[in-house]
Design a protein around this nucleic acid. Structure first.
Length: 605
DNA sequence: AGCGCGGGCGCG
DNA sequence: AAAGCGCGCCCGCGCT
């Protein structure tokens, strides 16, 4: 079936005649003749890359079907049912010699890899979602909203028609018929939108931030491999952990209900009522005005020797909350999300945070507890392999020294690197004018001053984080600012520079726009520059590791840390290459360095 | 039953 | 003058 003019009317939505999309031609391949027409069209000369998109049965490429594959350019779109025309589709994907465009390339690549057994050549692909994220980080980057802004205000019409029909007919994304016009027409139209969006975004990206774009596209490739390879789970170990924690949780919940009528340890209202019954008054409140019953407050109650019953209650709530967090957020999810080979294929969003940091979901492998080793220990290397982790050393503080050009900070890092001193001991030594050991509270206070300053925190927050009275922290902060004036100078100049744009923003060294909310420039922008460039640096490290031949070993990136799985006999060499890829002694005013370790049994310290 | 939100907590 | 940044996931709770 083909629709010439009025394709969108056929789908039940009127697009005004003058609308840029009203002349678009959209087609569905239903027979051999359609296929020949499609191939003739494919062979035509065109000035844009070929846009490709898919419609799938859902979001998890490992569990749902590939329904449609669509191809298009700025004027024409084709929808082709995958199961009926697999051979032809694979041939096009394999043999087309021009460039490709997708909106969310990693999503399509996963489906192509798992359902068609092929991968589009990354070096010939553009991704308009990446381009949008770089050009307009403060705006929605989905295909529909972006197209409404830059292609046609009517671009998202028809979404509602499709949703209504699906609901009325009881169709899901797995079961909706290919030939239902709103389905295939809007599938095909998406490629047209993608191609037109590229016409808007691509020249701008090349003009504004070609380096950031090149790095992002390379990062997509490296992260794709990580997602496909997956991490191996020790299933019996996880099952044992779950059982033990569940037994504990059940007993603790029974006690809470029996003794204090608390049915849910997550309910602050119930806990505070029970505390009130014991004659314990609230000591802190949430923003909403309710008594705070979080970890910090409960830990305080747990230390109150004069109130043994409150201590006992707080202790039970804290431990059952911890157990439930371990079970619900981590262990049970692991079993649910693993594939038949006990592999966990997480989802990596390479441009999730507005600072350019990545996020990891399903499961959130970047947030596995550090202290409670049970959770990280759930992941093991395959037979005859080891896990290797390598992390950047104080990368944010080093970048702060670099950006601020503060001679004192630069010197402290030089001494830390050359004499093997601890950086924060060196800084604390300068401030207090005596030798400071690692265990000294003044080192911790100094560290809190540095990191709180970078994140826009005040002296109150510094004292609170270090657990000391305000009066004790104040002179430390004053002495720090006097000794290392560069940092305050950096924060000042970034804040002033950032306030000149709307929205407030600054550019990273690779040209990435980093935005802040109005009125929050002071607390967000310095952090954005440092966190943002650390993210760029880490992405560069991962791409370099891939170039050095470690791409297939890479498993996970956790902001300033890389996790690899490598053959045991290569471990030392791999670690050496890894450290080399993560070290830069030339481009910055202080060296950026890395430190790694080999884990033979499981992922834990 | 599903949604949005606040509160809470895990990480860097 | 004063100001902690960035995420994901879970639960409870009130709403539709």
């Amino acid at each position: 079936m083909s629709t010439e003019h009025g394709a969108l009317e056929a789908a039940g939505t009127r697009v005004p005649a003058a609308s840029p999309l009203s002349e678009v031609k959209l087609h569905l391949v239903e027979n051999m003749e359609d296929l020949f027409t499609f191939k003739r069209w494919l062979g035509e000369r065109r000035e844009t890359p070929l846009a490709v998109d898919t419609e799938t049965g859902g979001l998890d490429p490992w569990r749902v079907k590939l329904r449609l594959v669509q191809f298009g350019d700025p004027n024409t779109g084709w929808a082709i049912p995958f199961e009926d025309w697999q051979g032809a589709i694979k041939e096009v994907l394999r043999t087309y010699e021009g460039r490709w465009i997708c909106h969310n390339l990693p999503f399509e690549q996963k489906f192509f890899k798992l359902h068609a057994g092929l991968t589009l050549p990354w070096e010939r692909c553009d991704d308009t979602m990446v381009e949008l994220a770089l050009l307009e980080p403060h705006k929605p980057k989905g295909l529909k909203p972006a197209s409404e802004r830059h292609v046609d205000p009517n671009a998202a019409r028809g979404q509602d028609v499709l949703k209504d029909a699906m609901q009325k007919q009881g169709w899901t994304w797995e079961t909706i018929p290919h030939s239902f016009p709103p389905y295939w027409i809007y599938g095909a139209l998406d490629t047209v939108l993608t191609a037109r969006l590229w016409q808007w975004s691509h020249p701008r990206v090349l003009a504004e931030c070609p380096e950031a774009y090149g790095l992002e596209m390379a990062t997509l490739r490296v992260c794709h491999q990580m997602m496909v390879n997956g991490m191996l789970l020790d299933v019996p170990y996880v099952q044992r952990s779950i059982q033990e924690l569940q037994e504990f949780s059940t007993q603790a919940r029974e006690w809470l209900q029996r003794v204090h009528s608390v049915t849910s340890p997550m309910s602050g209202a119930q806990i505070s009522r029970a505390m009130a019954t014991l004659g314990v008054d609230p000591i802190a409140f949430t923003d909403g005005g309710a008594p705070r019953m979080d970890k910090e407050t409960l830990t305080t109650y747990r230390g109150w020797a004069a109130q043994p019953r409150a201590q006992e209650l707080a202790s039970y709530v804290l431990s059952v909350r911890h157990a439930d967090k371990m079970l619900g957020s981590y262990l049970e999810n692991f079993l649910e999300m693993m594939d038949g080979d006990h592999l966990i294929h997480c989802n990596i969003n390479t441009l999730a945070a507005r600072t350019g940091r990545m996020s990891v979901t399903e499961p959130a492998l970047q947030t596995l507890p550090r202290e409670d080793k049970i959770i990280r220990g759930s992941f093991i290397p395959h037979e005859r392999k080891v896990l290797i982790s390598c992390d950047l050393s104080q990368v944010e503080a080093r970048l702060a020294a670099h950006f601020s050009q503060d001679p004192g900070l630069i010197e402290a890092f030089r001494r830390a690197d050359e004499d093997g001193d601890d950086f924060f001991c060196a800084v604390a030594g300068q401030i207090f004018n005596e030798v400071i050991t690692k265990a000294d509270l003044r080192r911790q206070m100094t560290k809190n001053v540095v990191y709180c300053s970078l994140y826009g925190g005040g002296v109150t927050k510094m004292a609170q984080t270090a657990g000391v009275p305000l009066a004790q922290m104040q002179p430390v902060k004053s002495a720090f600012d006097a000794t290392y004036p560069g940092l305050q100078g950096l924060i000042q100049s970034i804040t002033e520079l950032g306030r000149r744009t709307n929205p407030p923003s600054i550019r990273s060294p690779l040209g990435r726009m980093l935005v802040a909310d109005h009125g929050r420039e002071f607390t967000q922008l310095t952090n954005a520059l440092i966190q943002g460039h650390a993210a760029e640096y880490m992405k560069r490290c991962a791409v370099d590791m891939d170039a050095a031949g470690l791409g297939d070993y890479l498993r996970l990136l956790i902001h300033d840390e890389g996790i690899l799985e490598a053959p045991a006999e290569e471990a030392e060499e791999v670690l050496r290459v890894m450290e080399q890829c993560m070290t830069d002694r030339e481009k910055y005013l202080v060296p950026l360095t890395a430190d790694g370790k080999i884990m033979t049994e499981r992922w834990a310290k």
